[in-house]
Amino acid sequence: MNHLFSGTLLHCYQAFGLTIDSELPCPELLPGEGAADVTIRYGVVPDNLDSTQYQGVCFQVNSKAFLLKLDNLAKYLVTAGEQIIIERAPGVQDSEVRLFLLGSAMGALLQQRGLLPLHGCAVEVKHEAVVFVGHSGSGKSTLACVLRQRGYRILADDVSVISFSAVKAPFVNSAYPQLKLGADILRLLGEDSDGLPLVKAGLNKFGIPLLEEGFVKTPIPLKRVYELRISNSQDLEITPLEGMDKLAIIIGHTYRPQFLTGKAEKNRHFEQCGQTARHCQASRLVRPNSCRLEELVDRVEEDWT
């Protein structure tokens, strides 16, 4: 349901378990309704924050706000986990503004809301969530795409947001129904890239929309986390992780950990990672560079049954 807010048309969406009103159209998100948790507006964004706690190459953090500055693209001011103000440079396409809005700016907002965003995709297996974390290029989206082809429903492609129930059990919230894949992978998987939107001009990556039956909209309990790694060895190995090793992959694959700068935020993050590790199983999945995808997914399915 879209509505007018002080003369401006706001589009209403749902994503990451939140209802979002946005002045910038975001067609990759599902339509939402009801009172907004988050408002995204255009406005004037300052070049610097007051009493900055931390300053990165293109971002600043203080106790209340997060500022992302991308030259010749846009500035994003994220405040109190409720509002994102965007000031865009002239001539920039919506898709480019959205790429960083739904990535880093949203990552900062989720952290401000006290959620735990993990850098990984999530799929539903028997009414529970399995999350595959890994560094960029480790094959998260590719794996999600193959699992989707095998009939599993997807919760998230790149950022899996963990929230906690009253008894502190971790749940995975659905992100938005899109997988981002390169043209070469799409060809390999027998998917057609004709007519798909480019994620960013000049970046050979396409957004594959997920159909309603292929996407989970509600939060489901987190069952298991796999860390994806690529090695030079010949063998595909799945190694169960316990204790500190399990905690280490949750901490190590938190999305945008450099945005967590305050002491209270760091402590909360550590406690949430501990809660998550306590409640889920975890394994490390090491695959050779030239691994056949079907074989990889066969092994993963074998592992979780």
Partner: peptide, 24 residues
């Protein structure tokens, strides 16, 4: 002071807010 700890499968993980390090 300034330590956070959590129990994990019989082990304990600690984080020091002073030096930002993790301990098992």
């Amino acid at each position: 002071d300034d330590l956070v700890s959590c129990d994990l499968d019989g082990e304990t993980a600690l984080m020091s807010a002073v030096n930002g390090k993790y301990y098992g």
